Simulated assay, not measured.
Amino acid sequence: MNAGPSFSLLVHHTDTDREFAYDRDRHVGQLARGLDEGEGRGWLIVDMAQDWSRMPRAVR
């Protein structure tokens, strides 16, 4: 584990209009473990359909 500052981001791809959706019940790209453990590990979890318009343009 890194002793210095770090940033972890999980992009939850839920916007099927713009990209393939990855989620718990999909046959490809299941994110159950990441979604279950991410917050406890200090990850920022961004929901693409709900949060993406609020992301800085440099990230999008």
Results as ranks from 00 to 15, higher is better:
Asn2Gly: 14
Asn2Glu: 13
Ala3Gln: 11
Pro5Met: 08
Ser6His: 11
Ser6Trp: 13
Ser6Asp: 08
Phe7Lys: 07
Phe7Val: 10
Phe7Gln: 06
Phe7Cys: 07
Ser8Tyr: 15
Leu9Pro: 09
Leu10Gly: 03
His12Val: 06
His12Asn: 00
His13Pro: 00
His13Gly: 02
Thr14Ala: 02
Asp25Ile: 05
Arg26Gln: 14
Arg26Ser: 11
Arg26Leu: 05
His27Trp: 15
His27Phe: 14
Gln30Val: 10
Gln30Asn: 07
Leu31Pro: 01
Ala32Ser: 13
Arg33Lys: 09
Gly34Trp: 01
Gly34Pro: 12
Gly34Val: 08
Leu35Val: 02
Leu35Ile: 07
Asp36Glu: 15
Asp36Phe: 01
Asp36Ser: 02
Glu37Asp: 03
Gly38Trp: 03
Glu39Ser: 09
Glu39Pro: 10
Glu39Leu: 14
Glu39Gly: 07
Glu39Tyr: 06
Glu39Arg: 13
Gly40His: 02
Gly40Pro: 08
Arg41Ile: 03
Gly42Val: 04
Gly42Met: 05
Trp43Asp: 00
Trp43Ala: 00
Trp43Ser: 00
Leu44Gln: 08
Ile45Gln: 01
Ala49Met: 04
Gln50Phe: 03
Asp51Lys: 02
Asp51Thr: 00
Ser53Trp: 09
Arg54Ser: 04
Arg54Met: 05
Met55Ile: 06
Pro56Gln: 07
Pro56Leu: 03
Arg57Leu: 13
